[in-house]
Design a protein around this nucleic acid. Structure first.
Length: 473
DNA sequence: AGTTGGGCTGCAGTAACTGG
DNA sequence: CCAGTTACTGCAGCCCAACT
């Protein structure tokens, strides 16, 4: 006796996975047997999931709040730790304090610093809050070790270390543009937000990002050999600049430069002819000329994303530049929100097979790509009529920080909230309430107290927790 | 550092389907 | 009807990261 994996059963499996991703293939097999009297092996279920581009990391899952929504005490601190990844204060201080803490490994030390800083900045009693499970979860810990913390505090009081923060100031400097040098000597400009391509260094400071953040992103791009851009500003037909950039990516990258707010070079990174795949979003209402479908469009399929679900299909398409008459063939992924709608967004990629992985990564990065595009177009238009003040976040960071007792560590949190205020607006981080849910490809952060524009700004800044996209909803 | 839960992969075995 | 093909099962073994 054998169960046939029909389209119906596939739908049930996908629905089960969608509603209860924490089940895993074994759990889905059991649920199928119990609720549908349908016996399938875990291999069969795995095949169904993988056929839809669903792949989960091997290895034991975090049993704590895995996939389930959990309330977090000190939700604001969690946001600030996300924010910290952009400049790396916690990391820097952990590195500097290492010499004083021979008994603690670097990882443990980094966690303790975060815990102590957040607990000291909290209004609640230190001893009580460090033992609170929902608080620990918020600062990325599962358990509290009083032995390690008291050792840490003892050493701090003993040595009263003063830490030079120049490194953090450098990390916080804003990068305006990432400049790619290609093997044939040509180059291309991309803003630090990886929103879009530019003809020259970007000057609109909405698109600037801290150096540390941009560097980490570039390293990630190089390691997974995939460059994702939110959109192309091409009007009518695909612009010649985008085509040149795509050509360059195919030839290989010689070097990458990070440019500052005035276009000055901050850092240069050489890479030995790395070739990158790409995916670039586009708005079909604007980019709608010189497009020739080379095959019949297949039926739209549904893909689950961190935000709302999206329908997608892919068509091999020739894009012809109106003026230069040049044409290139790309895999054109069309996206729409509902069945009876026209595609409201598109994604161009060089990848033909299994492009769904790119698509889900793209959607995790820009879950509401249409809104991001429209908002940023307005910002670009407005830039030419209104003056925006220069931003120099590094100036808020002191050159030195002294730690004599646990109370001093609250300074880090105060500094982080001052920096976050510059970028996203004022918020009472200490009193913030919220919860977290970990999903397959993102951490969803829920908080009703944060105004929508601020959530948008947070999401646009591309935060992540433990390498996974963090989205504020 | 060893244990463990959980996903992934490969493979032999087999039921069901297909076409001559 | 039979040989070949396809699709699923059920293992074993591997890998990886959380847990202890």
């Amino acid at each position: 006796m054998r169960t046939k994996v029909t389209a119906h059963i596939k739908r049930i499996i996908l629905r089960l996975y969608a509603s209860k991703p924490y089940l895993g293939v074994r759990g889905i097999a059991i649920a199928l047997k119990e609720s549908y009297r349908c016996v399938l092996s875990k291999s069969a279920i795995s095949t169904v999931l993988r056929s839809r581009g669903i792949r989960t990391r091997a290895g034991r899952k975090d049993g704590y709040s895995r996939y389930q929504r959990a309330a977090i005490k000190g939700f604001g601190f969690l946001l600030l730790s996300c924010f910290d990844a952009r400049i790396g204060i916690f990391e820097h201080i952990a590195k500097e304090l290492r010499v004083y803490m021979p008994k603690l490994s670097y990882g443990v030390l980094a966690r303790i610093i975060r815990l102590v800083s957040c607990a000291a900045a909290s209004d609640e009693d230190f001893e009580r809050i460090v033992r609170d499970g929902s608080f620990l979860r918020g600062v990325g810990l599962h358990a509290y070790s009083s032995r390690e913390v008291s050792y840490f505090l003892k050493r701090i009081e003993e040595y009263k270390p003063a830490i030079n923060c120049q490194q953090v100031r450098d990390n916080a400097r804003l990068v305006s543009t990432v400049k790619f040098y290609f093997e044939d000597g040509t180059s291309g400009y991309c803003d630090a937000k990886f929103s879009t391509l530019w003809d020259a260094p970007c000057t609109i400071n909405h698109f600037f990002e801290p150096f540390q953040h941009t560097l980490a992103r570039v390293e990630h791009i190089l390691s997974c050999k995939l460059l994702m851009l939110s959109y192309t500003k091409s009007f009518d037909s695909l612009s010649a600049a985008v085509m040149r950039f795509i050509d360059g990516l195919g030839l290989g990258i010689k070097a990458i430069e990070f440019l500052g707010d005035r276009g000055q070079r901050i850092e240069r990174k050489t890479c030995a002819g790395v070739r990158l795949s790409f995916c670039i979003g586009y708005y079909p209402k604007i980019l709608n000329k010189g497009i020739f479908f080379l095959e019949k469009a297949k039926r739209f399929r549904r893909i689950r994303t961190a935000g709302a679900d999206v329908m997608y299909t892919a068509v091999s398409t020739r894009f012809v530049q109106e003026k230069t008459k040049r044409g290139i063939i790309l895999n054109n992924v069309l996206l729409k929100r509902r069945e009876r709608m026209l595609p409201a967004w598109g994604m161009l990629t060089d990848k033909k097979e299994r492009y769904e992985t790119y698509l889900s990564r793209y959607l995790a990065m820009w879950p509401s790509m249409e809104d991001t595009f429209k908002d940023e177009m307005k910002i670009i238009e407005r830039f030419f009529v209104t003056e925006t003040p220069d931003r120099h976040p590094e100036k808020l960071i002191p050159e030195k920080m002294v730690f004599e007792s646990k109370e001093d560590f609250s300074k880090i949190v105060v500094l982080l909230s001052a920096l976050a205020k510059e970028e996203f607006g004022a918020l009472d981080y200490g009193g913030l309430e919220g919860s977290v849910r970990r999903t397959r490809d993102a951490y969803m952060l829920y908080s009703r107290l944060i105004p929508v524009p601020m959530k948008k700004a947070f999401n646009g800044a591309g935060f992540s927790i433990e390498g996974k996209r963090a989205l504020l909803v």
